[in-house]
């Protein structure tokens, strides 16, 4: 119940921001990089990522994997706590 309310709250700005139209959301990290380009047009990043997501391993997939890994660990530990409480009593 609370979780459903939270999802609504988290999604609310989207509905408000795009007013029904599909708008591509830009990450604030990318916007910061644009701001750097404006302030210091001569600056060239001196390192590149070793590997970038693409093809089969899209960014969405890896973000999902990251969230899933975290959720799996959270669920496991929560179940462990619950089992322990049942075994030993409160």
């Amino acid at each position: 119940m609370g979780l459903a309310a939270w999802i609504l709250l988290a999604a609310a700005p989207a509905a408000w921001a795009d007013g029904g139209e599909a708008v591509e959301l830009k990450g604030s990290d990318d916007r910061a990089a644009e701001a750097v380009a404006e302030i210091a047009p001569g600056y060239r990043p001196w390192a590149q990522p070793l590997w970038e997501p693409g093809g089969m391993f899209s960014e969405e997939l890896i973000f999902t994997l990251q969230a899933a890994t975290g959720a799996l660990v959270l669920g496991y530990l929560a179940g462990f706590l619950r089992g322990k409480t049942r075994r030993e009593g409160p």
């Binding site: 988290a10 999604a11 700005p13 989207a14 408000w16 921001a17 795009d18 708008v23 591509e24 959301l25 830009k26 990450g27 604030s28 990290d29 916007r31 973000f63 999902t64 990251q66 969230a67 890994t69 975290g70 959720a71 660990v73 959270l74 530990l77």
Partner: peptide
């Protein structure tokens, strides 16, 4: 694990950006 989950959630925000 909580940090892992939350920092993977790219959420939409105001002014057409997400974080």
């Amino acid at each position: 694990a909580f940090v892992f989950v939350l920092s993977a959630l790219k959420l939409p925000s105001v002014a057409g950006s997400c974080s």
